[in-house]
Amino acid sequence: MIATATLTAKGSPLRGTNATAVDASEVDPAVLAAARRGDRAAFVELLRFYERRIRHIAWQVLGDQQAMEDVLQEAALRAFRGLSSFRGDSGAGTWLCRIAYTTSVDHVRRRPREVAAGDEELWEAASPDPGDSIVARMTLDEAFEALSGEQRIALLLVDREGLDYNTAAEVVGIAPGTLASRLFRARQLLRAALENDQPEVQR
């Protein structure tokens, strides 16, 4: 068990301190309120507002367009049914992302064995700590491929979607410290690969 797992997190030293780097936009409260009253059109509007983020999550977990769309439909229905229990303690976006993530993971777990076997690498560290010599030869594509599914999600949520560590950890259902460690390794690998992708500098 990771050290932070049983702590009542008040944040972490990894708190997101750069507000400008964070997508601060939230759905119109009126839309959220209407959705919570059961307005289906408002609920669809709510989903559309966060569509890009939840699509990212489902795609990274599933890697298949049809599966992604099926899962997002299922996640949307789960969210609609769960609106009565959503009290706004976290943002609606975080709540929806969490549902999208758990629905996607459930989908992977329930896939037929032959398919699931091929996706195991999504959830395991394919190369958690590659040696320098390997990293040095990796392109960005290869490095991204080498990340575990968990690392990819961490990277996506924080660096691509701009979530702070705690929110991203909440989406994935882990302690912020765990999220941070995944992110650290992922960044380490991707950063090195990014350098490799740069045109060579003339001396």
Binding site: P13, L14, R15, G16, T17, N18, A21, V22, L155, V158, D159, R160, G162, L163, D164, Y165, A180, R187, L190, R191, L194
Partner: peptide, 8 residues
């Protein structure tokens, strides 16, 4: 401890 914009 913040989003890495370049990587993003």
């Amino acid at each position: 401890p913040r989003p890495d914009a370049e990587l993003g």
